[in-house]
Amino acid sequence: MTLLIQYTLIFASVLILVALGGCISEHSGVINLGLEGIMVIGALGGALVMKFFKTDSSFLMILLVVLAAIVMGMLFSALLGVACINFKADQTIIGTAMNMLSVAGATVFVKAINTAADPNDVSSTIQYNGPKKMFIERIGNFEFNWFMVITLVVLGLVCLFLYKTKYGLRLQACGEHPQAADSVGINVYKMRWMGVLMSGALGGLGGICYILAGVSEWKFETGVAGFGFLALAVMIFGQWKPYRIALVALLFGMFRALSNVYIGFDFLYNLKIPSSVYNMMPYIVSLIVLALSSKHSHAPKAEGIPYDKGQR
């Protein structure tokens, strides 16, 4: 049971981080379908730090890994910003391209590093068994992960940002009615860039959190298994509101955690349901949830529509 709670919390953390990223981006008016790719690149950044940086201070390690993931995520999200904000490209195509680009790019990159170190090593795997332990505090059976705290802090900060700061107000105005924002002198492009970069930061953070959730090595060819899109489903069901997103993420996190730990529950194990079914669960649940919650959506009104200063 502790194991279930532990996995639920950590997967929920991933979903919260990434969904908040999507939420900020959409509030600024840009649909970020590249979150999946941003997660991969963020994870890559963090994993590289863990591979190459040696320290005994877990604080320093956590700080650097988190920073690397954030920076890489932001850099990668700039691809979305340039294309969709400045060049008004189709946000769906660009998002899809970013997802493919991230996996192919990370694979090529990691393989190149591995092959350079050892010509016989053609894998796309990075190991981080040692540094991973620094993120975890054992409390009895429960493995406490520092990302749970980071997520809580981020959740608080995002709420504060969206509802209590002037940039939050302006950002939301750009997603709802960019012409209105423009008419009071707000630079819509700038605010949308801010939204995209912040979603890049949160997506990158979610990515590193995801690969640290269970295993101690990551094969970059596999990407992040649709988690970026699950996060978007969480965001839609959470109606673009941070605290609702957090609650929904817990629900989704639990279904994802079940596939990791169902063997530990005798009654579930005795049902003899193939593991594939548990793997499917989060996706099936999200489809059902989407079907129930998409009809009356509270999406920002201007999301997905490129802003053109000339059109008023």
């Binding site: 209590k164 700061t165 107000l169 302006r170 939301q172 105005a173 709802e176 009615h177 012409q179 209105a180």
Partner: peptide
């Protein structure tokens, strides 16, 4: 005053009025 109002529908009247010229203290509205 534009012909098509430049108002954010899901904001309050006050938020719409201050949008763009907000007062802040320590970064908070």
């Amino acid at each position: 005053v534009h012909q098509h109002f430049k108002l954010v529908e899901c904001f309050t009247v006050l938020d719409n009025i201050i949008l763009g010229v907000e007062d802040t203290k320590n970064g908070l509205l």
